[in-house]
Amino acid sequence: MGSGTKRLRHPVLGELEFQHLVLQLADNPDQKLVTFTAIDSDQARITTLPR
């Protein structure tokens, strides 16, 4: 299992920061689930994008 921060550049919003978490299956370590959650200030900016 691992975690950390990733920064991505969006064409409209510019730089966004995400916390990521990697979960690994004990029975099959080749399978992983990675989740990305925007930090609070960036999450508010993301919600302003048109749908």
Rank of each mutant, 00 (worst) to 15 (best):
G2N: 08
R9E: 10
V22G: 01
P50H: 14
L13F: 00
H10V: 05
P50E: 12
T37C: 03
T47K: 09
L16I: 05
L49D: 06
G14L: 07
S3G: 09
L49I: 12
D30Y: 02
T35W: 12
L8H: 06
I39Q: 06
L8K: 10
R9C: 07
F18Y: 13
L49M: 11
E17D: 04
L23Q: 15
T5V: 06
N28M: 11
V12S: 14
P29W: 00
F18W: 08
D30N: 12
L23G: 12
M1G: 11
N28I: 10
I46C: 07
T48Y: 03
L33S: 05
G2M: 04
E15K: 11
R51C: 12
M1T: 07
T37I: 09
T5M: 04
T47I: 02
I46P: 01
V12Y: 09
G14T: 06
K6L: 14
V22C: 05
L23F: 14
P11E: 05
Q19M: 11
D27E: 15
Q19S: 15
F36E: 10
D30M: 03
L8I: 13
Q43A: 11
D27N: 15
I46K: 07
Q43K: 10
Q19I: 03
R45T: 01
T48N: 07
D30V: 02
N28G: 08
A38F: 11
Q24K: 09
P29N: 00
H10E: 05
G2L: 03
G2D: 02
A44H: 09
Q24G: 05
T37Y: 02
P11M: 10
L13V: 00
Q31E: 14
L13N: 01
T37Q: 13
V34N: 03
L25K: 12
G2E: 07
Q43D: 09
L16M: 06
F36L: 13
Q24S: 10
K6M: 06
R7N: 07
S41K: 12
L21Y: 13
L13K: 04
I46G: 04
L8A: 11
S41T: 05
G4N: 02
L25Y: 12
A44V: 14
P29R: 08
D42T: 03
Q24E: 13
H10Q: 06
R45P: 02
S3P: 01
L25F: 08
A26C: 05
S41Y: 04
D30G: 05
E17R: 07
I46Q: 08
L13H: 00
N28D: 15
S41L: 10
I46V: 06
K32D: 01
F36V: 05
P50N: 15
Q31S: 11
P29C: 00
G2V: 05
P29H: 03
F18L: 10
G4A: 00
P50T: 13
Q24P: 01
K32W: 02
H10T: 04
T37E: 06
E15G: 01
L8R: 09
D42M: 09
V34I: 14
A44M: 03
I39Y: 07
T48I: 04
T47D: 05
I46T: 01
G4Y: 00
L49P: 01
H20D: 02
N28H: 15
K6V: 14
S41C: 09
G4P: 00
K32C: 08
L23P: 06
G2R: 02
P50K: 14
P11V: 09
H10L: 12
E17T: 12
